[in-house]
Amino acid sequence: MSDGSGGASLARRLARPGVIGGALALAIGLWVMTEASGYPLGTARRMGPGYFPVLLGGLMAVLGTALALASLGGREAPRGDDERADPRALVAVLAGLAAFALLLPRAGLVPAVAGLVVIAAQGSGQMRPLGAVVLAVVLAALAWAIFRMGLGLPLPAFRL
């Protein structure tokens, strides 16, 4: 092949972001079509609630297939700045958000902010535990002062 993609092994080509992304889009598109075809479709003249989503699911599946094939065939220009996944940051940040969502209705604003900050701060790998706790206290106090006192949002500092 003239574009030089023939050199890459099949396994490496299958791991290209375009191939993975296209395959995912195809899968999601098909799922949307299946789900939406459970709603009344109606006619082109008087469309039911299912018509438009089915159309979108189909479009998504076609586009996903096209992207996967184009990428597999080496039709996509490479980009040097592809980043590596950072599982530590991913887990820390998402766990921090989960802590906030769980603590806010049960324990109040201050514990929720503290939980979010202490957990999410682990994502950088550059924070000592004491530093994280100090940051948590400062941010919790700030959040309370700005949002509860300043803007009067219905966010009690503590709940029992």
Binding site: V93, G96, L97, A98, F100, A101, L104, P105, L109, A112, V113, L116, V117, A120, A121, G123, S124, Q126, M127, L135, A136, L139, A143, F147, L151, L153, P154, L155
Partner: peptide, 28 residues
């Protein structure tokens, strides 16, 4: 420094999103 800034960004996002319709679901 970003290691101090990003937890603050997350706090800001969470409270801001929650305040729109007082919904924890939106944090999820």
């Amino acid at each position: 420094p970003y290691r101090l800034l990003y937890p603050a960004i997350l706090v800001f996002i969470c409270i801001g999103v929650f305040s729109i319709r007082n919904s924890v679901f939106d944090i999820w």
